[in-house]
């Protein structure tokens, strides 16, 4: 039997209408316990209205070493940002 409980990542929605946000991680013997632990560890000061937990090993993360080719090409493509475009005065409420 493995004596070390697996690691779970915790996501909390602070209020209705917002999306769940990663707040931290904790150990638990299974998902149900992880949910209870998350309630006790991360919502003591009314931080949330909904909790998601997911096993950390189930998350596939991008490799920091790949950042160069994954993310840097986007930095010089300023036309992908709405601020690149001049909005004609006739278009109101943009």
């Amino acid at each position: 039997m493995n004596k070390d409980w697996p690691l779970y990542e915790v996501f909390i929605r602070s209020k209705n209408g917002l999306s769940h946000k990663h707040v931290g991680s904790l150990h638990a013997s299974d998902a149900a316990m992880a949910l209870e632990n998350a309630r006790d560890v991360y919502t003591r000061r009314s931080e949330g209205v909904s909790i998601w937990v997911v096993k950390a090993v189930d998350i596939l993360a991008s490799d920091p070493g790949d950042s160069e080719f994954l993310f840097e090409p986007a930095t010089d493509k300023i036309y992908r940002h709405p601020t690149f475009y001049d909005v004609p005065d006739e278009v109101k409420h943009m």
Binding site: W5, L26, H27, A28, E36, N37, D40, V41, R44
Partner: peptide, 8 residues
Amino acid sequence: PVLEHDIA
């Protein structure tokens, strides 16, 4: 026994 249940 573990931090999580200490807090609980």
